[in-house]
């Protein structure tokens, strides 16, 4: 496990320029939110939401592209001993999971700060962050684990030149897996655990509370761990 910090550092070295671009997007969003004014066609709140969704879309696309590019190059020749596949995959998973979380955290924080200023009775930062971490655990972490597994999986077909076919199967399988996860998740939702409840009463007392079921979140996290273990095994077998 002592190789983990070095591997994290290598991941950072490979994606430095992307980190700079992401920080630039956050900076632009902050400046944009600070300079929002009223205009005859739009409410400033709507413009803030639009700015947020553009930044989130561009940022998450860039994150996935950066993950693609950095997974293709390998800088581990610098290490004195070769660590196991699981350590490699874990380092990538931690790095990209944390990077995506940081980006989403700052972006949501910016939007929340704006709305806290202009909307009376905005729910507190803690419930916004609960919603954010729920979404990240539900989508981002299993997504990263699936991407890592898909890379190693496609790599294992390099010798037989069937990488294109494996890539196609991994691409199509992603949607089937997501569909299966939605099916199972909705079956187990609210079954055993009490849901996380976020109150919107301070905003408008006619709004219902948001009740987030915990079972699908647990399912997603379990799936992420399973995919990561599998990715580690594939890595080992490809390198061997």
């Amino acid at each position: 496990m002592s190789a983990l910090p070095t591997l994290l550092w290598l991941e950072f070295r490979k994606s430095q320029s992307f980190v700079a671009v992401l920080a630039g997007i956050l900076l632009l969003t902050a400046v944009g939110l600070a300079r929002l004014g009223a205009n005859p066609l739009n409410q400033p709140e709507e413009e803030a939401i639009a700015l947020f969704s553009v930044a989130a879309t561009v940022g998450s696309t860039l994150l996935v592209v950066a993950l693609f590019l950095s997974a293709r190059q390998d800088g581990t020749g610098l290490l004195p001993s070769v660590p196991g596949g699981l350590v490699h995959q874990l380092a990538r998973f931690v790095y990209w999971g944390v990077l995506g979380t940081l980006f989403a955290l700052v972006l949501t924080g910016l939007l929340w700060a704006y709305f806290d200023r202009v909307v009376p009775g905005m729910p507190g930062l803690s419930s916004t962050m609960t919603l954010l971490f729920y979404g990240l655990g539900l989508f981002w972490l299993p997504g990263v684990a699936y991407l890592l597994l898909a890379f190693s999986y496609v790599q294992s077909y390099q010798l037989s030149r069937l990488g294109w076919l494996a890539g196609l199967v991994a691409f199509l399988g992603f949607f089937s897996l997501a569909g299966a996860l939605v099916q199972v998740g909705s079956k187990v939702a609210y079954a055993a655990l009490p849901p996380l409840t976020l109150s919107l009463q301070s905003l408008n007392n006619r709004l219902d509370d948001i009740r987030l079921p915990l079972e699908p979140l647990l399912l997603s996290l379990l799936l992420a761990v399973g995919l990561l273990l599998l990715a580690g095994r594939v890595w080992d077998e490809v390198e061997a």
């Binding site: 999986y153 069937l162 494996a166 199967v169 991994a170 399988g173 299966a180 599998l230 594939v234």
Partner: peptide, 29 residues
């Protein structure tokens, strides 16, 4: 045919099983 090709195409057992799993999911879909 894809299952056959992907089973033959990799030396890694885990990757073969991943192939079968993904194809099974696609068939289920």
């Amino acid at each position: 045919v894809v299952a056959f090709l992907l089973w033959r195409g990799s030396a890694s057992l885990s990757a073969r099983l991943v192939s079968l799993g993904l194809l099974g999911l696609i068939l289920w879909g």
